[in-house]
Design a protein around this nucleic acid. Sequence first.
DNA 1: CAATCACCTGAAGCGCGCTCCAGGTCAATG
DNA 2: CATTGACCTGGAGCGCGCTTCAGGTGATTG
Lengths: 127, 127
Amino acid sequence: MTTQPPTTDTITPGEMAERTGVSIDTLRYYEKEGLLQGVGRAASGHRRYSEHDVLWVEVLRCLRETGMTMQQLRHYFELGAQGKHTENERAQMLRDHRVLVELQLAGLHNALSLIDHKLSFYREDQK
Amino acid sequence: MTTQPPTTDTITPGEMAERTGVSIDTLRYYEKEGLLQGVGRAASGHRRYSEHDVLWVEVLRCLRETGMTMQQLRHYFELGAQGKHTENERAQMLRDHRVLVELQLAGLHNALSLIDHKLSFYREDQK
DNA sequence: CAATCACCTGAAGCGCGCTCCAGGTCAATG
DNA sequence: CATTGACCTGGAGCGCGCTTCAGGTGATTG
C-alpha cells in the first residue's frame, strides 16, 4: 500500500472553470491561499484537476457564497487534511456557519416581505 | 397648504445609530452619497433626524443587507423624490431586486442542505 | 516555421462600502 | 473657567476577494 494519490488528475483549468463556475484566476488564487492543495500537473507544467477537486471546489463555492471567509475555509481545509481527530472541530465550524446562514435566511425573508409590502402599495396606487 | 416639512427633527445622531443599527459614520456617509437628504440641524449645527428618517434608514439597511448597491439605492431614492410619476420605475426596481433575493434564498437553502448533509456524516462517524 | 492558444508566474491594482483620523465647535458640568 | 462629551468636516485608509497585467513556456495547427 503506497501513498500513491489517485491518478485521475485529468481535468484542465479551462474545463474546471467551466464545470465549477469558478474562474481560472480564482482557482489559482484559492490554491495560493491554501484552500486547494496537491493539484496535479501535466508534463507541460499546466494544472490538472481531479474529480475530487471538482467536488471540493463546489463545496468551497457554496460556503463562500454564503459568507464563510477565506480564512475559515482555509482552516476547515487544513483540519480535514490533518485527519479524523479533527472531526469535532470541523463539525463545530459547520454548525457555527449554519447559524449564520439561518440569520441570513431570516434577513432575506424580512426583505422579501418589505419588498412585497411596498409593491402592494404601488399596485394600489396604480389605478 | 405650505411646503412646510414635518418639524419633527428631534433625533440625535447617537440615538439614530442606536435605533437603526447603522453607525454615525455610516449615516453621514449615506447622506454624503445622496441616500439621505434634508436631514435637519440643531442650532449647534448638529444633525437632527426625524421619525421618517428612521423608517427610511431601516429600509436602506434592509435593501443593502440583501445586496442592493449604493448606486441603485441612490437611484431609488431620487425617483421617490421626483414624485408619483416614477412609481412604475420604482416598482420595477423592487421587482428586479426581489428576483435577486429569491436567488440568494435558493443559494442559502442549497448551502443549508450541504451543511446538514456533511454534518450527518460527522454524526455517523462520531461513534 | 510562424502563429495561435491555453496556460504559467509573481506582483500590482481594483471596487465596494464603509471606517477612522485630525483638528475643530458647541453646550453642559463641577 | 477648564473639562468633558457629543458632534462637526474633509479626506485618507482599510479589508476582502478577487482580477488584471507583464512577460514567458510548450504543444498544436496551417
